[in-house]
Design a protein around this nucleic acid. Sequence first.
DNA 1: CATGATTACTTAATCGATTTCGGAAAAACC
DNA 2: GGTTTTTCCGAAATCGATTAAGTAATCATG
Lengths: 336, 336
Amino acid sequence: MVTITDLSRRCNVSRATVSKALNGHSDINAETAAHIRQVAKEMGYLPNATARALKLGRSHNIGVLFVDKTSSGLGHEYFSRILESVKQEAERSGYDITFISRDIGTLPMDYYEHAKYRNCDGVIIASVDFTDPAVIKLVNSDIPTVTLDYVFDSRSAVLSDNVGGMADLVRYVYGKGHRRIAFIHGEGTSVTQKRLGSFYKTCAELGLTIPEAYVEAATFHDPKASGLATRRLLALKERPTCILYPDDFSFIGGMNELERQGVSIPEEMSVAGYDGILLSQVLRPRLTTYRQDAEAMGREAARQLVEIIERPKEWIPRQIMIPGRLLEGDTVRAIE
Amino acid sequence: MVTITDLSRRCNVSRATVSKALNGHSDINAETAAHIRQVAKEMGYLPNATARALKLGRSHNIGVLFVDKTSSGLGHEYFSRILESVKQEAERSGYDITFISRDIGTLPMDYYEHAKYRNCDGVIIASVDFTDPAVIKLVNSDIPTVTLDYVFDSRSAVLSDNVGGMADLVRYVYGKGHRRIAFIHGEGTSVTQKRLGSFYKTCAELGLTIPEAYVEAATFHDPKASGLATRRLLALKERPTCILYPDDFSFIGGMNELERQGVSIPEEMSVAGYDGILLSQVLRPRLTTYRQDAEAMGREAARQLVEIIERPKEWIPRQIMIPGRLLEGDTVRAIE
DNA sequence: CATGATTACTTAATCGATTTCGGAAAAACC
DNA sequence: GGTTTTTCCGAAATCGATTAAGTAATCATG
């Protein structure tokens, strides 16, 4: 590896001069600087990120915390899209991505310690149990953080517009003439609260009263659970005319159950999903769903974090809401 | 942050002694060492990975190169499973994961330079164009690498058993009585070559001659392409009785086309996929497919890499074949 | 011309660890 | 008792960068 010392010898200047020349300090003669940069290029010099990080206390490394319990993490297309987008935006600003987890090797560590150990300049947190003490410790530490789909006090967050998304879906379905709308909601996250609240609110605004039996719970991303919930809905004396699923993937379970009972989509039952994953758009009939803008979420999260890292003075915690958009498929029938 | 200097002051010993005590050197009195470790724990001391990396020339950081062009990277469940598994195994050995890419910030870099810049101890390469000069440069560099599903000379590789998998599928289908077997293969990767070769070979061994028209090409992970290929197959005078798809996700395209033409699965057409993604197991009928053991692949890749890094002397390049297993679904009908 | 300002560089300290070499004290040996 | 060996610890160099402070040399100014 060619180091700054090699360059300094080759150019007959001190290491300080080389460093300053490469970093564009003003107290270096233009010609000297040009020459040094030239030689640096010739010799294929690259600064050593480690040495730099040690000296500057800045690693230009962003940690990401994605917990992959039961494929709710990276296995989920939504999160892999976010991750990819975070990565791209971070790289544009000169940051690399490192995964943060517990227990690295034989050292028992929590998330905060891991991030410190790796000198992460900041951490993006998504898809975790936000009530986990280790997560809370990290969020309340000196390390800048940005959370996705969850808000902590005096911390920035990027949020998918779950309220708006749900409202859009309900209004769309209502607009198609549906009045008996069932909602199978996910479980155990704040996202659920948002969507459920929005569902009730929007229905109320539209003058709909939804029977309790029309609201079912099922685990996110679990077709089996959604299938069972669907079965319960189909067993009702007065069936809904439309079922909203917790997410596109779960819908597969509902699809199977409907097929099994010979209920055709959308003729006999309208359905809609949530997420807008690739699958939803290749199914026939194409699934009507609400596509979350994962790319924008990742991008904004990275931007916010870089902002906090690079301009800590001017920064104030911000919650950024990213709207998605309704993807109209062919699974919601118009009824008169 | 509590540093080694803080510890040394607190214990009234030199920094050298602290370092040695914590790293278990033998020239430190047992009691002294115990005391230092005790104090280290009390003060919440964690070694600074950056400083350590600088001094030792080892970052305990593994780079991963996943190129995400058109969702063939992380977006693909197969690769996200591999990544997760690589991560877990690497962490068990005390390594973190950093993504490698081109161009970090304003510095134009190729993969090799990026890996060097970040002091990666090694790189795991998957899902890229292995003919890319930048990839070849990296593989031929001083940085240890392990490739997935592709072999370079004198480098270790972890391979999914594409030959065996394809053979298993063909034999299974043959065993169910099928003789007119069509194969829609993916395009443009060495994986394709393997599977296609194995398809022909196995058919030959079974005494089958496959008409040229039964072998179609379609992009991986692209339901549309597979749908079109399916349409062409259905248009043949003598239709196949079974279609093998390039991967499970692509099969959706075939499924749609079959549905559209009123061809029922498996009564009128048997089908099988490849990969064994979650989706394949929640579809009804359940898709018969060959599940690649992505977890084992990631794990082995990480193990191999750590081996090269930590025992470069004893190491010899190895190709490790990871078998998958046939998942029997309900999409291949037995015919007499 | 003497003094102060500017320019263009260098010296040396620093970040937080690790490790070589050496040295003092204690223990072992003849 | 004197010598050798062992035990235990410290001083200082080192990894590759950055930067505050300092120093010549040149330039400008009254």
